[in-house]
Design a protein around this nucleic acid. Structure first.
Length: 468
DNA sequence: TGAAATGTTGGGGCG
DNA sequence: ACGCCCCAACATTTC
């Protein structure tokens, strides 16, 4: 009789879970354990924590269906694991490898005093596996993607729908309750079955229109799987396998291309974890070293207006309000709002990065930082150009009727279509008619896009290297 | 996974 | 009927 501890961190699922499988294969008893780490609990991400706690409740329910249960303990992981390990007379601890700098440090400390087995499962291929011929990392996505796609997809570790969880050990720790949260309405229901349903729904039709519709802000045309992937409520290997299957089954070339684009997004996720692997400092400092030279404007009141969705640019404000209320934005909305902060307000990208981390359900350091640095980078990607998003053009393109804007910015609900993207241009009588006085009910734009361009170009010029 | 400036084309109104 | 102009729509170039 041996007991394995399944230390759950961000692999909150039973299906295709390599760490869980490893624990089961090597033990006759299993102790599923989640540690409430004060370091993580102190992070001000209330919505994401609520999603996580509710997810833990669902996982506990799943475990109980098979005669097991989830154990919750509070404290420093090294201390907690030592106690549980000896109290339950366990043989080893099994966990899915996590690659953030904090996780690495934490796991290193645990492994120094206890038998900790880290099993890969967070990405399809372990970060670091894919590199150039000479061993150096890919820093351009396109090249990484080609290398990624040339590799055979690893098979899921347990394909059977039903498997039997080993029983609990005889001596189990006294455990805490899953914390309650003050968050009432979660934008998405967490848990493995919700994730699975969402994927199935997406695969039926939307995946074949993904490229054409993903940027339309008023639609719900994307998979919205990222919060589930964030907590491992669904297996990335399984998702990729389904994506490949969908591509192979596409009815026509256009559908195939649409589905292919969705898979490419999953490869972006792999790419950012790879970048983090090779550049572990890239989370806190700019991956592009020359970004340090930029003279940011960093006006606190402008940053605050951005956070609260009161910049006076409807599409930016809609996005920021949606983020604060629900913890979710389409990638297009993330790009528009991020570009506005960095390129229009000239605020250091790290300010935006940490606000997103506070609010996003899917907030993941590697991906969030990667996305922000993509925004801040003045165009090292292909083709090499300098991009400043024009919030009005983006708005007209991706929310042509203003549906998204009106959904999130109530003050603009009755503004006519002709002015929905630029309400500051409304004549006074129309402002009165639509009940939206600019500068009173809805803010005047905090910066003028046109006049700000020169400042931004100048600030970013310092990043140009000789010969460029 | 831009935007703005510039260039090209093609249909319709009109003399 | 025909050529000319206008201009919107689309394409290409440049930053």
């Amino acid at each position: 009789m041996s007991t394995g501890i399944w230390w759950i961190r961000r692999d909150m699922r039973l299906d295709d879970n390599p760490a869980l499988q490893e624990a089961i294969n090597n033990n006759s008893c299993l102790l599923p354990l989640f540690i409430l780490d004060p370091t993580i609990l102190s992070h001000p991400a209330e919505k994401r924590k609520a999603f996580m706690f509710e997810g833990l409740r669902r996982l506990d329910a799943q475990l109980r269906l098979q005669g097991s249960r989830l154990f919750i303990l509070i404290g420093d992981p090294q201390t907690v694991l030592s106690q549980v390990f000896y109290a339950s007379n366990a043989s080893a601890i099994y966990a899915e490898a996590d690659y953030s700098p904090y996780a690495r440090k934490r796991d290193h400390a645990v492994a120094a005093i206890l038998p900790l087995w880290l099993v890969h499962g967070l990405t399809v291929f372990p970060p670091g596996l894919i590199h150039k011929q000479n061993g150096s990392p890919y820093t351009v996505y396109t090249h990484f993607k080609l290398a990624w796609k040339s590799l055979p997809l690893p098979a899921p570790c347990c394909t059977q729908q039903e498997f039997h969880l080993p029983p609990l050990p005889e001596s189990t720790p006294i455990c805490e309750d899953i914390p309650e949260t003050s968050i009432r309405d979660l934008f998405m229901q967490p848990g493995e079955s919700a994730a699975f349903k969402r994927l199935q729904k997406f695969l039926r039709e939307p995946i074949y229109e993904y490229l054409e519709k993903r940027d339309l802000l008023a639609l719900d045309a994307t998979s919205t799987l990222s919060p589930y992937l964030r907590f491992g409520m669904i297996s990335i290997r399984g998702v990729v396998q389904e994506a490949r299957f969908a591509i192979d089954n596409a009815q026509d070339e256009k559908s195939r291309k649409n589905a292919q684009t969705w898979l490419d997004e999953l490869v972006w996720r792999e790419f950012y974890y790879s970048v983090l692997h090779f550049f572990p400092d890239g989370l806190k400092t700019s991956f592009r070293k020359d970004l340090h030279k930029i003279q940011w404007h960093n006006a606190p009141q402008e940053l605050e207006a951005w956070k609260q969705g009161k910049t006076g640019y409807p599409v930016v404000d809609a996005g920021m309000r949606q983020l604060k209320q629900t913890g979710w934005m389409l990638k297009r909305a993330r790009m528009i709002t991020a570009s506005f902060l960095v390129k229009n307000l000239l605020v250091n990208w790290q300010e935006g990065e940490s606000w997103f981390m506070e609010n996003l359900l899917d907030g993941d350091p590697a991906l969030n930082s990667g996305g922000w640095q993509w925004t801040a980078s003045p165009g090292k990607d292909v083709p090499p150009t300098f991009r400043i998003f024009n919030p009005t053009l983006q708005s007209q393109k991706f929310d042509p009727k203003g549906t998204y804007i009106r959904r999130w910015v109530a003050e603009l609900a009755n503004v006519p279509d002709a002015f929905i993207h630029q309400p500051w241009r409304m004549p006074e009588d129309i402002q009165k008619q639509s009940g939206c006085i600019i500068g009173d009910i809805y803010p005047t734009p905090i910066v003028d896009h046109k006049s700000i361009q020169e400042r931004t170009l100048l600030a970013f010029q310092t990043t140009k290297e000789p010969g460029e």
